[in-house]
Computed example of a mutant assay.
Amino acid sequence: MRILDVCAFYTPAGGGVRTYVERKLKAGPVAGHEIVILAPGAEDAVTEVAPGAILATIAAPEFPLDRNYRYFDDEARLHAALDRWQPDLVEVASPWTSAAMVGRWQGAAPRALIMHCDFLSAYPYRWLQGLMSQQTIDRRMDWYWRHLRRLNRQFDFVVSASDDLTQRLRAGGVDRALTLPMGVEPGIFSPTHRDPAVRAALLDQCGLGEDATLLVGLGRMAPEKRWPMVCEAVLAAGSSHAVGLVLFGAGRDRARIVRASRGSPHIVVAPPIADRAELATMLASGDALIHGCEAETFCMVAAEGAASGLPLILPDRGGASDHHRPGCGARYAACDVRDMARVLTEFLAGDMTAAATRSVARASSVRTMDAHFDEMFALYAGSVSRQTAA
């Protein structure tokens, strides 16, 4: 098959989506498929990354709110590109303009909408938290649900990486939604990368000795990630336990996160780690991973933490919650800083050695991206075969 991914979220400066796309470019040809990533870029270009793996861009304007990204703005040019590539199957990685454009394309290829974002959780639910219930917000946001139901009629599959999101989509009338969990890059993350010297150095940056607990946070510094809430919970738990937090990332919310640390020497806001091997060592050298975002559609960070053998402190909603396993960390009520602080305090007071042992044992069973792609390609092949036979 030639699988063409209309990927509005791809950018060389990206995070989880970039990691996902780059692995797909490797996994597709190995499975006998040609992968074409069609992304908005600075110029029209076609790059053969490897045999059977192509990265093509259409010149497009910068996204005003984040100039690391661009967006498709010319439907005729996008349709012309689809006609030119003649894909056997088309994917779209955004539920917005690019999905609507592909939905209106007159080509015959089956189509899959990949829900790489949960708009309602990331924005309206968060903005209106405490003012309206989610049910009320959904009623007020009926235009969004009508949009998704229209896309549901235009696409053969609506693929979600989280059961939580899939169930909400189905409840909203998106009856073609199905869950296809993602995974971690194979061969990168492992408890064997744990380095006591790295752990000691990170704790030293937090002004703590090796008898303290090292929490690790990782991700974009954006409002929906709720890092200030994480800082507040860690500060509260730190009143009764020696605990340090190192947050790795970059983004427009950095200054707000630094302010939320209240000058504590035990919270360090560090730059992102680009080198994957270094990241794997850093993760494995922590004592637990903590995450605040309930709007994740999969939460690659939690999966990487689990594959590194870390206990996970996670919200009880969204894609992050799917990575929780009993005895391998804890879950708190999403968006509730008091409950997060309570759960974290209880975790720190509990048998952390046992939690670490169970988490290390669990690491080898964490799903890989290749398993995800095997399942996805089989789903697509069935759809293409049915269309050919019709």
Rank of each mutant, 00 (worst) to 15 (best):
L218M: 11
C7G: 01
R146N: 08
L203P: 12
W127Y: 12
I188W: 09
R199S: 10
T11N: 08
D370F: 06
H193R: 15
E346R: 14
H116I: 08
R18N: 03
D336I: 04
D339H: 14
A42D: 15
S364I: 09
E278Q: 15
E278H: 12
Q86A: 13
E346P: 08
P186T: 05
R111H: 09
R77Y: 03
S121E: 10
L208M: 04
M1T: 11
T281E: 14
L4T: 14
S285V: 03
F63K: 11
E232H: 14
F63H: 15
C206R: 01
L314Y: 12
A222P: 00
P223M: 04
L82W: 02
G107L: 02
R84K: 15
R104T: 10
K225E: 09
V49D: 06
P40S: 06
E278A: 13
F72H: 04
L82A: 06
N68E: 07
D156A: 13
G217V: 09
V360W: 04
L78C: 11
A200M: 02
A371S: 11
V343T: 13
K225D: 07
T166A: 14
F72E: 01
V36R: 00
H241R: 10
A355Q: 15
D316Y: 08
A93W: 03
R146S: 10
